[in-house]
């Protein structure tokens, strides 16, 4: 049985900033827009985390918007 496609994510490297992560995961996007997009897709990190935006090595960081699902 093959796996259905799921939303693409990466995990942050040690001490990686959101800008560095955006460059790594979305190299074809303008940086500012990519960072904004990543924040909007990962509010669990950029809003709910204390302090907000603290990325951890164990985090799931989505690098695309939610997928439409049946």
């Amino acid at each position: 049985m093959s796996l259905s496609r799921q939303r693409r994510f990466v995990t942050p490297g040690p001490d990686e900033t959101v800008e560095e992560l955006a460059r790594r995961a979305m190299p074809d996007q303008p940086l500012e827009g990519a960072v904004d997009a990543i924040k909007s897709w990962n509010l669990h990190v950029f809003v709910m985390r204390r302090p907000p935006g603290l990325m951890l090595g164990s985090d799931v960081i989505f690098v695309e918007p939610p997928l439409a699902h049946a």
Binding site: G13, R49, L54, L56, G57, S58
Partner: peptide, 10 residues
């Protein structure tokens, strides 16, 4: 503050 396990890389 997140507990220690959350600072672990995969």
């Amino acid at each position: 503050r997140p507990v220690p396990s959350r600072f672990a890389q995969f």
